[in-house]
Amino acid sequence: MPSAVSSHTSTAPTASTAERLSRWVNRHRMWVFAAPAMAFVTVLIVFPLVWTLYLSVTDSAGSVSRAKNFVGAENYTSVLTDTERFWPAVGRTAYFTIGALVLELIFGMLIALLLWKPFKGEKWVRIAVILPLVATPVAIGMMWRLIFDPNIGFANYLLSQIGLGPYPWLASETMALPTLIFVDVWQWTPMVVLILLAGLTSLPEEPHEAAKVDGASGWKQFWWVTLPMLMPTAIAAVLLRAIDALKTFDILYATKGKGGGSFHEVETLNVYAYGLSFDYFDYGTASTVLILFFIIIMLIVALLTTRRKVAS
């Protein structure tokens, strides 16, 4: 072996160093090709996570560059015993997510079944259905805030035409969250429709035909043939929507503002964590809430993916 030619002494790599580099790359190609992705994951996922974890065991407040003390599990015990803000926020997050998810699945399935078989004007109906999906969430929040205004809003005007109302909608402590579930359903059902429709179109014809020949009714065909075959797709839709719904922030903040309203009536975990860091400047507690939230999401994802494996 000739003595090593150090590459930094020459401005351009010589043929032999280039050769050697290329051999090295070839030998380690598994790592080299994965490197950008690994760097990406480290910088954008692992670092924030580790940093958040670190902040969650400190009393960091005011500014992250201020001196902070290690407080161990203190933040965790105080958050987990907090029945004023934390647990109600967990409850609201679950309520919002489950409420929105169930309705989106039901409506999504109905619309997908309607669009499954070709009909006249199908193209236009499909476009109309996905419209809410392409609008900006904050703009949607502002729009529904106007529609649901108790005094000048369109919703109450419409209901007054058939002798109902007026309802306080977002202005009411108890009605605000259900109203926002409605908005979420309005916006995200189209996505469920798209996913389920893709699943439906890929289903084989034969089982349906066999069921028809055997004299199964439409409902029985759906329940015993279509639905089981569609299950993996449906669970994928649930997974995607559940994660999104858990993390919903924009429509909540755009309609009710800081702290989810004066009584924290729509304060979910995400809104709470945002308030802790951006209004209260309490990074220690905010990080604790986020870590706990992260754990909750991971548990749900794990649960759903095992369900999905079983289903498929």
Binding site: E19, V25, A35
Partner: peptide, 19 residues
Amino acid sequence: HPFSRRTAAVALAAGLVLA
């Protein structure tokens, strides 16, 4: 294809440094 492989390696390295 020595050239393309070398280019790829250099580009990769440069990319990492830039990042």
